[in-house]
Design a protein around this nucleic acid. Structure first.
Length: 285
DNA sequence: CGCGCAACCTGTCTGC
DNA sequence: TGCAGACAGGTTGCGC
């Protein structure tokens, strides 16, 4: 679940509490977390460095350190980043990584499934290379327009949902927000990306922006494991229009929400508001 | 190059 | 009750 709104929520919560502090100590408890870098390598790179900013690119969370060092973390499916004060215990299940700040506060990374990662990158240009190779435009920035979306989808035969989940096309969208954005835009997830018309591209761009902004306002979606940096659940799951709402009435037309499979993932649609493309209809029949 | 899918790892739920 | 199998929000690498 950690998609753009969840990572942005964590970023905003951490920023005022870690910027300006120095990292007194760092510990990697699971070597898989920082592979292919070694725990010792990561720990040494972090110790004694001041945190200058906390930033985000797509679903990556970045601690920007003095002299252009960057701790680049990704929560994948079940990762959590938690801030705790100097008087709280940091004995948590599935703890993979811990930073101790000079003021005694700590930042913890826990992760049941161990997919989450954290590596250190030295140099601003190396960071940019790493992030830019993996990401398309940030959907909440001005460059993300219907025209840009049209250019990126041109000629593509992959289903629009698969297109949206590919971070190289648009940064930060995952399974939840893809479903919600496609519903808002009244587009079927299996429609080939390159077949979207101009009006559909406009609605999709607007649907993506609206659903991500609502996700941020709601402090993210807590379906199962996600918690914010305070350990609290988000509220977005209560505002889902179709995601995880199989059988419930579509908030727009009242038809029963259906679950299907798109891009290999569980996908929720209103079958009336999101008309199936020709190919998908043939498959069903 | 574009696309689909298995794999990474662990916990939970479903059905027999 | 026990257990095999499917499934879970993400990303990467491999094969066609």
């Amino acid at each position: 679940m950690p998609e753009l709104p969840e990572v942005e929520t964590i970023r905003r919560q951490l920023e005022p509490r870690v910027v300006g502090r120095t990292i007194a100590d760092a510990l990697v408890l699971d070597p898989l977390w920082c592979a292919p870098q070694s725990p010792a390598e990561v720990e040494e790179a972090l110790r004694g460095r001041r945190v200058e900013a906390v930033s985000r690119r797509g679903k990556y969370l970045v601690f920007e350190l003095a002299s252009e060092g960057f701790l680049v973390m990704h929560l994948r499916m079940t990762g959590n980043v938690l801030w705790i004060g100097s008087d709280e215990s940091d004995d948590r299940p599935y703890l993979r990584f811990r930073i101790v700040l000079a003021d005694g506060a700590r930042v913890l990374f826990t992760d049941v499934r161990r997919f989450g990662t954290g590596i250190v990158i030295e140099g601003r240009s190396a960071l940019d290379d790493y992030l830019d190779a993996r990401h398309g435009p940030e959907p909440l920035e001005p460059a993300f327009t219907a025209e840009a979306l049209g250019k990126a989808t041109r000629g593509r035969r992959a289903p629009i949902k698969a297109f949206l989940l590919d971070q190289r096309h648009v940064a930060g969208i995952g399974n939840i927000y893809a479903d919600e954005a496609l519903f808002r835009a009244k587009i079927h997830p299996l429609k080939p990306a390159g077949r979207l018309r101009r009006d559909e591209l406009g609605r999709l761009r607007d649907g993506i922006v609206a659903t991500l902004e609502e996700g941020i306002r709601s402090f993210g979606a807590s379906i199962d494991d996600y918690r914010d940096a305070n350990g609290d659940s988000g509220q977005m799951q209560e505002r889902f229009l179709v995601h995880l709402r199989e059988g419930e009435p579509c908030p727009r037309c009242g038809s029963a929400v259906r679950k299907l499979r798109a891009a290999g993932r569980g996908t929720y649609i209103c079958p009336k508001c999101q008309r199936a493309p020709r190919a998908a209809r043939a498959k069903v029949a």
